[in-house]
Design a protein around this nucleic acid. Structure first.
Lengths: 208, 208
DNA sequence: TAGATTGTTAATCGATTAACAATC
DNA sequence: TAGATTGTTAATCGATTAACAATC
Protein backbone atom coordinates (compact mmCIF):
# COMPACT_ATOMS: atom_id res chain seq x y z
CA UNK A 1 0.00 0.00 0.00
CA UNK A 2 2.54 2.59 -1.12
CA UNK A 3 0.38 5.67 -1.32
CA UNK A 4 1.76 8.90 -2.71
CA UNK A 5 2.29 11.30 0.18
CA UNK A 6 0.43 14.44 -0.80
CA UNK A 7 1.04 17.83 0.70
CA UNK A 8 -1.04 19.07 3.60
CA UNK A 9 -2.85 21.63 1.46
CA UNK A 10 -3.96 19.04 -1.06
CA UNK A 11 -5.17 16.64 1.62
CA UNK A 12 -7.21 19.41 3.20
CA UNK A 13 -8.99 20.08 -0.08
CA UNK A 14 -9.94 16.45 -0.67
CA UNK A 15 -12.91 16.40 1.73
CA UNK A 16 -14.22 19.49 -0.04
CA UNK A 17 -14.19 17.71 -3.38
CA UNK A 18 -15.64 14.59 -1.84
CA UNK A 19 -18.60 16.43 -0.35
CA UNK A 20 -19.34 18.27 -3.53
CA UNK A 21 -19.08 15.15 -5.66
CA UNK A 22 -21.39 13.21 -3.38
CA UNK A 23 -23.85 16.05 -3.57
CA UNK A 24 -24.00 15.98 -7.36
CA UNK A 25 -23.38 12.28 -7.98
CA UNK A 26 -27.09 11.52 -8.43
CA UNK A 27 -27.43 14.04 -11.24
CA UNK A 28 -24.14 13.82 -13.06
CA UNK A 29 -22.25 10.78 -14.24
CA UNK A 30 -19.32 12.83 -15.41
CA UNK A 31 -17.81 16.01 -14.13
CA UNK A 32 -14.94 18.20 -15.31
CA UNK A 33 -12.27 19.83 -13.16
CA UNK A 34 -13.26 23.13 -14.76
CA UNK A 35 -16.77 22.75 -13.46
CA UNK A 36 -15.77 21.72 -9.94
CA UNK A 37 -13.35 24.63 -9.76
CA UNK A 38 -16.03 27.13 -10.68
CA UNK A 39 -18.53 25.70 -8.22
CA UNK A 40 -16.09 25.62 -5.31
CA UNK A 41 -14.33 28.86 -6.17
CA UNK A 42 -10.92 27.28 -6.70
CA UNK A 43 -8.36 27.47 -9.48
CA UNK A 44 -9.06 25.20 -12.42
CA UNK A 45 -5.50 23.89 -12.68
CA UNK A 46 -5.34 23.33 -8.94
CA UNK A 47 -8.40 21.10 -9.01
CA UNK A 48 -7.09 19.19 -12.00
CA UNK A 49 -3.77 18.63 -10.30
CA UNK A 50 -5.37 17.56 -7.05
CA UNK A 51 -7.64 15.10 -8.79
CA UNK A 52 -4.81 13.76 -10.93
CA UNK A 53 -2.84 13.07 -7.75
CA UNK A 54 -5.45 10.73 -6.29
CA UNK A 55 -7.16 9.47 -9.36
CA UNK A 56 -5.77 10.14 -12.83
CA UNK A 57 -8.73 8.66 -14.58
CA UNK A 58 -9.93 11.78 -16.39
CA UNK A 59 -10.83 11.78 -20.04
CA UNK A 60 -10.45 14.79 -22.33
CA UNK A 61 -13.75 16.34 -23.37
CA UNK A 62 -15.90 14.40 -20.87
CA UNK A 63 -14.01 14.86 -17.60
CA UNK A 64 -14.03 12.40 -14.73
CA UNK A 65 -16.49 9.69 -13.93
CA UNK A 66 -18.15 10.98 -10.79
CA UNK A 67 -18.47 7.63 -9.03
CA UNK A 68 -14.90 6.57 -9.75
CA UNK A 69 -13.59 9.89 -8.52
CA UNK A 70 -15.56 9.57 -5.30
CA UNK A 71 -14.17 6.10 -4.76
CA UNK A 72 -10.60 7.21 -5.45
CA UNK A 73 -10.80 10.09 -2.98
CA UNK A 74 -12.38 7.83 -0.40
CA UNK A 75 -9.62 5.31 -0.89
CA UNK A 76 -6.96 7.96 -0.48
CA UNK A 77 -8.59 9.33 2.65
CA UNK A 78 -8.94 5.81 3.97
CA UNK A 79 -12.70 6.18 4.36
CA UNK A 80 -13.39 2.55 3.61
CA UNK A 81 -11.33 1.13 6.43
CA UNK A 82 -12.74 1.78 9.87
CA UNK A 83 -10.38 3.33 12.41
CA UNK A 84 -11.54 3.22 16.00
CA UNK A 85 -11.43 6.25 18.29
CA UNK A 86 -12.34 7.21 21.84
CA UNK A 87 -12.95 10.53 23.55
CA UNK A 88 -11.59 11.48 26.95
CA UNK A 89 -13.67 14.24 28.50
CA UNK A 90 -17.42 13.83 28.73
CA UNK A 91 -18.35 17.50 28.92
CA UNK A 92 -20.45 19.32 26.39
CA UNK A 93 -17.98 19.23 23.55
CA UNK A 94 -17.04 15.63 24.20
CA UNK A 95 -20.67 14.55 24.16
CA UNK A 96 -21.48 16.62 21.09
CA UNK A 97 -18.70 14.87 19.20
CA UNK A 98 -19.76 11.49 20.56
CA UNK A 99 -23.23 12.07 19.21
CA UNK A 100 -22.23 13.31 15.79
CA UNK A 101 -22.57 10.68 13.09
CA UNK A 102 -20.54 12.46 10.41
CA UNK A 103 -17.25 10.82 11.32
CA UNK A 104 -18.17 7.35 10.16
CA UNK A 105 -18.46 8.77 6.67
CA UNK A 106 -14.70 9.23 6.78
CA UNK A 107 -14.07 5.83 8.31
CA UNK A 108 -13.63 7.01 11.88
CA UNK A 109 -15.77 5.22 14.44
CA UNK A 110 -15.94 6.87 17.84
CA UNK A 111 -16.66 3.97 20.15
CA UNK A 112 -16.95 5.57 23.59
CA UNK A 113 -16.21 8.55 25.80
CA UNK A 114 -14.48 8.50 29.17
CA UNK A 115 -15.13 10.80 32.09
CA UNK A 116 -14.37 11.05 35.76
CA UNK A 117 -16.81 9.29 38.07
CA UNK A 118 -18.78 8.27 35.05
CA UNK A 119 -19.72 4.65 34.96
CA UNK A 120 -21.36 2.92 32.09
CA UNK A 121 -23.70 5.76 31.41
CA UNK A 122 -25.07 5.34 27.92
CA UNK A 123 -25.55 8.42 25.81
CA UNK A 124 -29.18 7.76 24.89
CA UNK A 125 -29.26 9.48 21.54
CA UNK A 126 -25.88 8.30 20.41
CA UNK A 127 -26.24 4.84 21.97
CA UNK A 128 -22.61 4.94 22.93
CA UNK A 129 -21.16 4.28 26.36
CA UNK A 130 -19.63 6.92 28.62
CA UNK A 131 -17.22 5.02 30.84
CA UNK A 132 -15.10 5.83 33.86
CA UNK A 133 -11.51 6.71 33.18
CA UNK A 134 -10.38 3.74 35.26
CA UNK A 135 -11.60 1.47 32.49
CA UNK A 136 -9.58 3.33 29.85
CA UNK A 137 -6.52 1.08 29.63
CA UNK A 138 -8.45 -2.14 29.27
CA UNK A 139 -10.95 -0.70 26.83
CA UNK A 140 -8.36 0.82 24.53
CA UNK A 141 -6.29 -2.34 24.37
CA UNK A 142 -9.26 -4.61 23.83
CA UNK A 143 -11.00 -2.53 21.18
CA UNK A 144 -8.13 -1.70 18.84
CA UNK A 145 -8.37 2.04 19.44
CA UNK A 146 -6.02 4.07 17.23
CA UNK A 147 -7.23 7.64 17.68
CA UNK A 148 -7.70 9.53 20.96
CA UNK A 149 -9.76 12.70 21.22
CA UNK A 150 -9.02 15.01 24.14
CA UNK A 151 -11.82 17.27 25.38
CA UNK A 152 -10.78 17.67 29.01
CA UNK A 153 -9.82 21.01 30.62
CA UNK A 154 -6.37 22.37 29.80
CA UNK A 155 -4.87 21.32 33.13
CA UNK A 156 -5.42 17.60 32.47
CA UNK A 157 -4.67 17.52 28.76
CA UNK A 158 -1.01 16.50 28.97
CA UNK A 159 -1.74 13.78 31.51
CA UNK A 160 -4.44 12.32 29.26
CA UNK A 161 -2.15 12.50 26.25
CA UNK A 162 0.48 10.53 28.17
CA UNK A 163 -2.14 7.97 29.12
CA UNK A 164 -3.17 7.61 25.48
CA UNK A 165 0.37 7.19 24.26
CA UNK A 166 1.08 4.65 26.99
CA UNK A 167 -1.83 2.56 25.75
CA UNK A 168 -0.71 2.54 22.15
CA UNK A 169 -2.80 5.32 20.66
CA UNK A 170 -1.03 6.71 17.60
CA UNK A 171 -2.99 9.85 16.73
CA UNK A 172 -4.43 12.51 19.02
CA UNK A 173 -7.03 15.15 18.23
CA UNK A 174 -6.67 17.76 20.92
CA UNK A 175 -9.41 20.25 21.76
CA UNK A 176 -7.63 21.54 24.86
CA UNK A 177 -5.85 24.82 24.35
CA UNK A 178 -2.46 23.39 25.15
CA UNK A 179 0.53 22.37 23.05
CA UNK A 180 1.01 18.71 23.91
CA UNK A 181 4.39 17.11 24.17
CA UNK A 182 4.42 13.60 22.74
CA UNK A 183 7.08 11.14 21.58
CA UNK A 184 8.08 11.21 17.91
CA UNK A 185 5.83 9.15 15.69
CA UNK A 186 2.64 10.25 17.41
CA UNK A 187 0.46 12.52 15.29
CA UNK A 188 -1.21 15.41 17.07
CA UNK A 189 -3.83 17.65 15.53
CA UNK A 190 -4.58 20.73 17.53
CA UNK A 191 -8.14 22.04 17.33
CA UNK A 192 -8.95 25.44 18.75
CA UNK A 193 -12.50 26.42 17.94
CA UNK A 194 -12.17 29.70 19.78
CA UNK A 195 -9.14 30.61 17.71
CA UNK A 196 -11.08 29.78 14.54
CA UNK A 197 -13.71 32.31 15.33
CA UNK A 198 -11.10 34.77 16.56
CA UNK A 199 -9.56 34.76 13.10
CA UNK A 200 -12.99 35.43 11.67
CA UNK A 201 -13.54 38.38 13.97
CA UNK A 202 -10.05 39.63 13.20
CA UNK A 203 -10.68 39.62 9.45
CA UNK A 204 -14.04 41.26 9.98
CA UNK A 205 -12.39 44.02 11.94
CA UNK A 206 -9.67 44.45 9.32
CA UNK A 207 -12.26 45.08 6.62
CA UNK A 208 -13.78 48.23 8.07
CA UNK B 1 -6.87 51.93 12.71
CA UNK B 2 -4.68 50.97 9.75
CA UNK B 3 -3.55 47.53 10.77
CA UNK B 4 -0.98 45.66 8.77
CA UNK B 5 -2.72 42.86 6.91
CA UNK B 6 -0.82 39.73 7.84
CA UNK B 7 -0.90 36.51 5.90
CA UNK B 8 -3.32 33.77 6.79
CA UNK B 9 -0.57 31.52 8.12
CA UNK B 10 0.74 34.16 10.50
CA UNK B 11 -2.74 34.97 11.82
CA UNK B 12 -3.35 31.31 12.50
CA UNK B 13 -0.23 31.09 14.63
CA UNK B 14 -1.09 34.10 16.78
CA UNK B 15 -3.59 32.31 19.03
CA UNK B 16 -0.93 29.67 19.63
CA UNK B 17 1.52 32.28 20.89
CA UNK B 18 -1.20 33.99 22.89
CA UNK B 19 -2.14 30.82 24.74
CA UNK B 20 1.40 29.95 25.52
CA UNK B 21 2.27 33.45 26.70
CA UNK B 22 -0.75 33.58 28.98
CA UNK B 23 0.24 30.23 30.39
CA UNK B 24 3.71 31.43 31.35
CA UNK B 25 2.98 35.09 32.09
CA UNK B 26 2.80 34.54 35.83
CA UNK B 27 6.30 33.09 35.97
CA UNK B 28 8.18 35.05 33.37
CA UNK B 29 8.32 38.79 32.81
CA UNK B 30 10.41 38.42 29.69
CA UNK B 31 10.53 35.79 27.03
CA UNK B 32 12.65 35.29 23.94
CA UNK B 33 11.50 34.18 20.51
CA UNK B 34 14.10 31.43 20.73
CA UNK B 35 12.45 30.06 23.83
CA UNK B 36 8.91 30.24 22.47
CA UNK B 37 10.03 28.53 19.27
CA UNK B 38 11.56 25.65 21.18
CA UNK B 39 8.53 25.21 23.43
CA UNK B 40 6.02 25.25 20.58
CA UNK B 41 8.17 23.34 18.12
CA UNK B 42 8.37 26.14 15.56
CA UNK B 43 11.23 27.78 13.72
CA UNK B 44 13.05 30.45 15.69
CA UNK B 45 13.13 32.98 12.85
CA UNK B 46 9.49 32.36 12.10
CA UNK B 47 8.46 33.18 15.64
CA UNK B 48 10.63 36.29 15.65
CA UNK B 49 9.16 37.47 12.39
CA UNK B 50 5.60 36.81 13.52
CA UNK B 51 6.12 38.68 16.77
CA UNK B 52 7.86 41.55 15.02
CA UNK B 53 4.83 41.89 12.75
CA UNK B 54 2.39 42.50 15.58
CA UNK B 55 4.64 43.95 18.22
CA UNK B 56 8.22 44.93 17.47
CA UNK B 57 9.02 45.70 21.05
CA UNK B 58 11.74 43.10 21.54
CA UNK B 59 15.05 43.92 23.14
CA UNK B 60 18.29 42.11 22.31
CA UNK B 61 19.54 39.86 25.09
CA UNK B 62 16.33 40.01 27.18
CA UNK B 63 13.65 39.29 24.60
CA UNK B 64 10.08 40.54 24.79
CA UNK B 65 8.13 41.77 27.76
CA UNK B 66 5.55 39.04 28.24
CA UNK B 67 2.68 41.32 29.20
CA UNK B 68 3.26 43.77 26.37
CA UNK B 69 3.45 40.97 23.87
CA UNK B 70 0.19 39.50 25.12
CA UNK B 71 -1.48 42.88 24.81
CA UNK B 72 -0.13 43.43 21.29
CA UNK B 73 -1.36 40.08 20.06
CA UNK B 74 -4.73 40.66 21.70
CA UNK B 75 -4.97 44.03 20.02
CA UNK B 76 -4.15 42.57 16.66
CA UNK B 77 -6.68 39.77 17.08
CA UNK B 78 -9.24 42.30 18.24
CA UNK B 79 -9.76 40.47 21.54
CA UNK B 80 -10.47 43.61 23.47
CA UNK B 81 -13.47 44.72 21.45
CA UNK B 82 -16.52 42.55 21.83
CA UNK B 83 -18.10 41.25 18.62
CA UNK B 84 -21.57 39.77 18.99
CA UNK B 85 -22.54 36.45 17.46
CA UNK B 86 -25.54 34.14 17.24
CA UNK B 87 -25.95 30.48 16.39
CA UNK B 88 -28.62 29.06 14.13
CA UNK B 89 -29.19 25.40 14.83
CA UNK B 90 -29.87 24.28 18.37
CA UNK B 91 -28.77 20.69 18.05
CA UNK B 92 -25.91 19.12 19.91
CA UNK B 93 -23.12 21.02 18.26
CA UNK B 94 -24.99 24.30 18.42
CA UNK B 95 -25.64 23.89 22.13
CA UNK B 96 -22.11 22.78 22.85
CA UNK B 97 -20.78 25.94 21.23
CA UNK B 98 -23.37 28.05 22.99
CA UNK B 99 -22.20 26.68 26.31
CA UNK B 100 -18.49 27.05 25.70
CA UNK B 101 -17.01 30.11 27.42
CA UNK B 102 -13.69 30.17 25.55
CA UNK B 103 -14.88 32.51 22.83
CA UNK B 104 -15.17 35.57 25.02
CA UNK B 105 -11.45 35.34 25.57
CA UNK B 106 -11.05 36.30 21.93
CA UNK B 107 -13.67 39.02 22.10
CA UNK B 108 -16.51 37.01 20.59
CA UNK B 109 -19.71 36.97 22.59
CA UNK B 110 -22.26 34.38 21.52
CA UNK B 111 -25.55 35.89 22.63
CA UNK B 112 -28.15 33.30 21.66
CA UNK B 113 -29.03 30.29 19.58
CA UNK B 114 -32.03 29.89 17.28
CA UNK B 115 -33.91 26.72 16.51
CA UNK B 116 -37.16 25.60 14.96
CA UNK B 117 -40.14 25.48 17.31
CA UNK B 118 -37.89 26.61 20.09
CA UNK B 119 -39.22 29.43 22.12
CA UNK B 120 -37.35 31.24 24.78
CA UNK B 121 -35.84 28.13 26.20
CA UNK B 122 -32.90 29.10 28.32
CA UNK B 123 -29.84 26.91 28.24
CA UNK B 124 -29.53 26.41 31.98
CA UNK B 125 -25.80 25.94 32.22
CA UNK B 126 -24.90 28.61 29.70
CA UNK B 127 -27.66 31.00 30.81
CA UNK B 128 -28.22 31.95 27.21
CA UNK B 129 -31.55 31.96 25.37
CA UNK B 130 -32.52 29.52 22.65
CA UNK B 131 -35.10 31.36 20.56
CA UNK B 132 -37.41 30.48 17.72
CA UNK B 133 -36.15 31.27 14.26
CA UNK B 134 -39.09 33.62 13.71
CA UNK B 135 -37.46 36.03 16.14
CA UNK B 136 -34.16 36.00 14.26
CA UNK B 137 -34.55 39.16 12.16
CA UNK B 138 -35.58 41.38 15.04
CA UNK B 139 -32.98 39.97 17.42
CA UNK B 140 -30.07 40.33 15.02
CA UNK B 141 -30.94 43.91 14.14
CA UNK B 142 -31.54 44.97 17.74
CA UNK B 143 -28.45 43.34 19.24
CA UNK B 144 -25.74 44.42 16.82
CA UNK B 145 -24.92 40.88 15.71
CA UNK B 146 -21.96 40.70 13.36
CA UNK B 147 -21.13 36.98 13.26
CA UNK B 148 -23.48 34.12 12.40
CA UNK B 149 -22.73 30.51 13.23
CA UNK B 150 -24.49 27.84 11.22
CA UNK B 151 -25.02 24.42 12.82
CA UNK B 152 -28.15 23.31 10.96
CA UNK B 153 -28.31 20.26 8.68
CA UNK B 154 -26.76 20.61 5.21
CA UNK B 155 -30.10 21.03 3.47
CA UNK B 156 -30.94 24.26 5.30
CA UNK B 157 -27.47 25.81 5.41
CA UNK B 158 -27.74 27.99 2.30
CA UNK B 159 -31.15 29.26 3.30
CA UNK B 160 -29.85 30.26 6.75
CA UNK B 161 -26.80 31.90 5.21
CA UNK B 162 -29.10 34.00 3.00
CA UNK B 163 -31.14 34.96 6.04
CA UNK B 164 -28.01 36.04 7.87
CA UNK B 165 -26.74 38.12 4.97
CA UNK B 166 -30.16 39.72 4.57
CA UNK B 167 -30.03 40.86 8.17
CA UNK B 168 -26.64 42.45 7.90
CA UNK B 169 -24.39 39.71 9.27
CA UNK B 170 -20.90 40.12 7.84
CA UNK B 171 -19.07 36.94 8.83
CA UNK B 172 -20.31 33.36 8.82
CA UNK B 173 -18.81 30.35 10.55
CA UNK B 174 -20.30 27.35 8.82
CA UNK B 175 -20.38 23.89 10.41
CA UNK B 176 -22.61 22.44 7.69
CA UNK B 177 -20.78 20.40 5.10
CA UNK B 178 -21.78 22.66 2.23
CA UNK B 179 -19.95 25.31 0.25
CA UNK B 180 -22.07 28.42 0.80
CA UNK B 181 -22.62 31.00 -1.88
CA UNK B 182 -22.61 34.53 -0.46
CA UNK B 183 -22.24 38.02 -1.92
CA UNK B 184 -18.74 39.50 -2.10
CA UNK B 185 -17.64 41.17 1.12
CA UNK B 186 -19.10 38.48 3.34
CA UNK B 187 -16.47 36.36 5.08
CA UNK B 188 -17.16 32.63 5.34
CA UNK B 189 -15.14 30.21 7.37
CA UNK B 190 -15.88 26.59 6.65
CA UNK B 191 -15.51 24.20 9.56
CA UNK B 192 -15.61 20.49 8.96
CA UNK B 193 -14.80 18.56 12.09
CA UNK B 194 -15.26 15.24 10.36
CA UNK B 195 -12.75 16.24 7.70
CA UNK B 196 -10.29 17.23 10.42
CA UNK B 197 -10.31 13.80 11.88
CA UNK B 198 -10.31 12.25 8.42
CA UNK B 199 -7.00 13.92 7.73
CA UNK B 200 -5.71 12.53 11.01
CA UNK B 201 -6.77 9.02 10.09
CA UNK B 202 -5.31 9.46 6.62
CA UNK B 203 -1.92 10.42 7.99
CA UNK B 204 -2.06 7.58 10.47
CA UNK B 205 -2.71 5.16 7.67
CA UNK B 206 0.09 6.60 5.56
CA UNK B 207 2.60 5.94 8.32
CA UNK B 208 2.32 2.21 8.40
C1' DT C 1 33.46 43.79 26.94
C1' DA C 2 31.25 39.44 25.30
C1' DG C 3 27.37 37.09 24.22
C1' DA C 4 22.59 36.45 23.61
C1' DT C 5 18.99 37.99 21.05
C1' DT C 6 16.98 41.08 17.99
C1' DG C 7 15.43 42.69 13.10
C1' DT C 8 16.50 42.51 8.22
C1' DT C 9 18.18 41.14 3.88
C1' DA C 10 19.06 37.25 0.78
C1' DA C 11 18.40 32.25 -0.41
C1' DT C 12 15.59 28.33 -0.43
C1' DC C 13 11.67 25.83 -0.61
C1' DG C 14 6.99 24.60 -1.79
C1' DA C 15 2.66 25.56 -3.68
C1' DT C 16 -0.10 27.92 -7.06
C1' DT C 17 -0.77 29.64 -11.57
C1' DA C 18 0.12 30.01 -16.51
C1' DA C 19 1.16 27.97 -20.97
C1' DC C 20 0.69 24.34 -24.08
C1' DA C 21 0.91 19.94 -26.29
C1' DA C 22 -1.84 15.56 -26.17
C1' DT C 23 -6.29 13.34 -26.82
C1' DC C 24 -11.00 11.74 -26.89
C1' DT D 1 -12.77 17.44 -37.85
C1' DA D 2 -13.05 20.95 -34.12
C1' DG D 3 -13.25 21.92 -29.57
C1' DA D 4 -13.35 20.92 -24.81
C1' DT D 5 -10.73 19.08 -21.41
C1' DT D 6 -6.93 16.56 -19.88
C1' DG D 7 -1.95 16.09 -17.90
C1' DT D 8 2.61 18.17 -17.81
C1' DT D 9 6.27 21.34 -18.02
C1' DA D 10 7.81 26.02 -16.93
C1' DA D 11 7.04 30.52 -14.51
C1' DT D 12 5.35 32.95 -10.70
C1' DC D 13 4.24 33.77 -6.27
C1' DG D 14 4.44 33.51 -1.28
C1' DA D 15 6.14 31.69 2.85
C1' DT D 16 9.85 29.63 5.39
C1' DT D 17 14.60 29.27 6.44
C1' DA D 18 19.40 30.81 6.55
C1' DA D 19 22.88 34.35 7.18
C1' DC D 20 24.40 38.33 9.39
C1' DA D 21 24.87 42.95 11.03
C1' DA D 22 22.93 45.77 14.92
C1' DT D 23 22.32 46.29 19.87
C1' DC D 24 21.37 45.97 24.71
Amino acid sequence: MSKKQLSKSVIERLPLYLNYLQEISDDKNNVSATFIAKELGLGEVQVRKDLAAVSGAGKPKVGYETETLIEDIKTYLNCNNVTNAVIVGAGKIGRAILGYEGFLRYGVDIKAAFGHHANDIIDIEAKKPILDLSEFDTYVRENDIKIGIITVPVAYAQEIADLMVKNGIKAIWNFARKALSVPPGIIVRQEDLAASVAILSCKLNAME
